[in-house]
Design a protein around this nucleic acid. Sequence first.
DNA 1: GGTGAGATTAACT
DNA 2: GTTAATCTCACCG
Length: 196
Amino acid sequence: MTERLGRAFFARSATEVAPDLVGKLLVREDEGLVARIVEVEAYLQDDPACHAYRGETTRNAPLFGPPGHAYVYFTYGMHWCMNTVTGEEGHGQGVLLRAAEPLEHLALMRSRRGAVKDRELLRGPARLAQAYGLDGSWSGADLCSGGVLYLADDGERPEVVATPRTGVAAGADTPWRFVIPASPWASPYKRHPRPL
DNA sequence: GGTGAGATTAACT
DNA sequence: GTTAATCTCACCG
């Protein structure tokens, strides 16, 4: 049984929402798309890489809005990425959906991306957004007020692990990525070794 | 199989 | 004019 996640679910710190979000279902009702989230990344305002780090702008305005909304942004000239806004209004934080496992209507996803492997349909935030047909018009959409796009809980509680940044040495090694290690849809444990 | 460079639009300084 | 939370393609081993 699936149960739509309410506003209270998102009204928490991104680091609290992110691990709970893994294993949930991403649903687009009007097209019958359902996928299980297997990898997310939390973005706090303290993160220099976060769009909200430098303050509120037109682009990241939804991040500062009330929780439970979608924040879809365009980057690198050709990629959309979907975030879920978390925290209280004015906090500027969110959770980036990085990868998901297609469950329903994956034929539509495949047709959108052409003939690709199933495991590549939703692997990566840009792929995920494109497979769902998300664009800038979805930015700021409400996920908790009866919209066609929302997140649901089907009761599954997969094992979730927090993966801190590799190579972070001292003190504040904040685990920002949350993945299901058992899922073949998630990215490998270590990706690109980054020199420091 | 793994590494390296390019593509391309929108928003910000 | 420069940047950007990425992905794809080409080439080397």
